[in-house]
Amino acid sequence: MKLVIVDTGCANISSVRFAIERLGYEVAVSDQAETIKSADKVFLPGVGAAAAAMEQIRNKKLDTLLPELTQPVLGICLGMQLMTRFSEEGQADCLNLIDTEVRRMQVGDKRLPHMGWNQVTPECNSPLFRDIEAKSYFYFVHSFAVALGEHTLASCDYGGRFSASIGQENFYGVQFHPERSGPVGAKLLQNFIQYCE
């Protein structure tokens, strides 16, 4: 099993790598087209602002490579948001791998960023959430989100429900940080590696 983390130049690459290594797998970090293309599973991590991250991705010519991938790709946090067609954060055109968009969360009198452990409920039978119970706690840090829609795999509620996870064909995304979500986060990463196609 060849696992590759796309080196987007974003900051949480180490923690994603360590989480995969804790599962007993080797994983490469690369921005090279051949390495990424030859992977069985690809991880797209990211933290920070969407517009800045898209600029890094374009500089590395990954904006043409990533849409061509046919193996399972897991976007994490900002990585998930970059998989959509557009993010309101910095009015950024994104990779358009999952047909939805990212908007600033409308949370009423609640505080932003939405930071901390919140409950996630799978909304369909995605292999990504295999054996993960409804209302499991995952760790979130974000102010922008994808609304519920046809590509929603799991939901969360913070001043209103939103997509905790989205997916379309071979592209999967999670708004939370599985690499920092304790045993249930490890379970989700294991599911992606083992069962997602």
């Binding site: 360590f18 989480a19 290594e21 979500s181």
Partner: peptide
């Protein structure tokens, strides 16, 4: 920092 990041699975 990196040694801590390696061993823990919480933020």
């Amino acid at each position: 920092v990196s040694r801590v990041a390696r061993v823990i699975d919480i933020p």
